[in-house]
Amino acid sequence: MSNILDVELLNVEFNINGNYYHAVNDVSFHIKPGETLGLVGESGCGKSVTSLALVRLLSKSARVTGNVLFEGQNLLDLADNEMRKIRGNGIGMIFQEPMTSLNPVYKIGAQISETLLLHRDISAREAFVQSVDMLKKVGIPRPDEIMDEHPHQLSGGMRQRVMIAIAMACNPHLLIADEPTTALDVTIQAQILELMRDISNDFGTSILLITHDLGVVAEMCDRVVVMYAGQIVEQGTVDDIFFNPQHPYTRGLLNAIPKIDARSKQRLQPIEGNVPSLTRMPRGCRFSPRCPHVTDPCKMQSPELFAVDDTHFSRCWMNEKREI
């Protein structure tokens, strides 16, 4: 089966004081039907910019190039009104902060129905019935009453369920979830992750899950893309990333987090230094100033994504010789 999403050489540049700087640099990945792909990295690595670029929600001042093929159609070539038919219909989106994503002055019912009325040729009455049905599917108690309430009357977890109901209302083939549980407490996070897993299983929806939390990645994803400073530094199956990480940044991330199942208390191994700023990218490998294995070539020339095996790629000179 062909891929739901193919991203080819996506570049996003922002204008800062008259100069263009790359926030996303030659990013390519794909998502297969029914698959959950994790996009991981720290703040400023370009993961959210990538997701916004895919659905063309960046401001016009951003320069976006490359191809974003959604079910074979290049989203970057579409006219604005054609793109609007895809958002919320073929591609659903949920963001981190449910309070700022929902409109505070509209009732929950109106916000779900809006999506349905926009994309489906149905009556308001039918849209209402389908909205109640959707709220039921995302596990909202008393859905009939909630339809008549405003966002401020709901808890954070409930709001995120409403966001998921809106995103899933038109049964999209791809769901883009940008830090969907970051603002939630762990027990509520567990509920929402379970819901997303159920949705993916029941509807066959592919998910692009953007997160900084490696625990969430390990639980949810089939494959993982690790980003650093606007580039993909490693890409592989979830097992590749967690059991055979190649790139020093990926390894650093895995070593830096305290483990709740650790037997003995060990000192954390941080990654020294800070993420480079957009305007001051290091020459050569972008991770070289913080890398414990840095050598002279690293500082001169940026490595490409070398294949470790069929599914596993790493942007590190240490992986070069494996390429035959």
Binding site: P141, S155, G157, M158, D185, V186, T187, I188, Q189, A190, Q191, L193, E194, D213, L214, G215, V216, V217, A218, E219, V238, D239, F242, L254, I257, K259, I260, D261
Partner: peptide, 25 residues
Amino acid sequence: RALLSAVPIPNPRAKRERIILRGDL
């Protein structure tokens, strides 16, 4: 117990016996 079981573990093969709490605070 529920709180501990809800923490996502960064290990895709970790065994999880999750206690999902119903409802909100």
